[in-house]
């Protein structure tokens, strides 16, 4: 595999051909914001937080889906990009009911952290206040649609890593919602193996562990890397 050299935010960096701007940037300590990307599963480019400017390209590019090229000049933190990201986070805050103070993920939520790092203390948009249920039918876990950002990490991890495909997306547009099986309560799902991977990857408090209190809700989002690497290298026992 060939090595490519490129410039990100004025820094000369190198990466392997086939790697994305996103992963090369993170390897070099440049943390491009993201919600839908998580290492170990496929990328869909849905959240649009990782958009970057690439010199010579008229359009912004999604870093998580754009492969590096020799001599590329990338900017990840211009005022224009910052303004866009801030508005995207505000749009999410207004879309459903994110009331952090009473959320099990308070302090461990990627959305909350994004808002904090961008200095969002109020939302300039009108809140939609949709009415969504909380599904607590599963013995160990819960699903609170009010806090879902529709990143589809849960759908992908369940399909690609666990192989169960319990989750999918129902409807479309603003009416989209995550479902298990034929839309039955999670507890009634026949395909769910109860592995809990979806809970681990969920960036917000939408999927949560019922047994844990607010303080204990620390998600280990790095676990996926190990599983996937282990699987690829056939390190499974048995």
């Amino acid at each position: 595999m060939s090595v490519k050299t490129l410039e990100i935010d004025g820094k000369m960096v190198t990466g392997m051909a086939g790697e994305t701007i996103f992963s090369v940037a993170w390897e070099h300590g440049i943390h491009i914001p993201r919600l839908c990307h998580i290492g170990g599963i496929s990328d869909v480019g849905a959240c649009r937080l990782c958009m970057v400017e690439v010199e010579g390209q008229r359009k912004l590019q999604a870093a998580c889906l754009t492969q590096i090229e020799e001599g590329m000049v990338v900017r990840t933190d211009t005022p224009r990009l910052k303004a866009h990201r801030k508005l995207i986070v505000e749009l999410l805050m207004a879309e459903r009911n994110h009331i952090c103070a009473v959320c099990v993920a308070n302090g461990a939520c990627e959305l909350q952290e994004l808002a904090r790092s961008m200095g969002i203390d109020h939302v300039r948009l009108r809140y939609r206040f949709p009415v969504f249920p909380v599904d607590t039918s599963n013995e160990r876990f819960g699903m609170d649609h009010n806090r879902c950002v529709l990143c589809t990490r849960c759908v992908r991890v369940c399909d690609e890593v666990e192989g169960a495909h319990t989750w999918d997306v129902f409807g479309r547009g603003a009416g989209s919602r995550i479902i298990s099986d034929l839309g039955e309560p999670w507890g009634a799902s026949e395909s769910c193996t109860g592995c809990g991977k979806c809970v681990q990857v969920c960036p917000t408090g939408a999927l949560f562990d019922k047994g844990k209190t607010v303080a204990e809700m620390r998600k280990d989002r790095g676990f996926l890397k190990y599983i996937v690497t282990a699987r690829e290298k056939k390190q499974w026992i048995g």
Binding site: D159, A164, D168, V169, F170, R172, I179, L182
Partner: peptide, 25 residues
Amino acid sequence: SPHLLTAIAHKLRLPPSRVLGVASF
């Protein structure tokens, strides 16, 4: 109907959530 969707999912060997996901899209 849910009954019909389940039958189709079984016959085509697709996850039920995918079948409903498509039908509702």
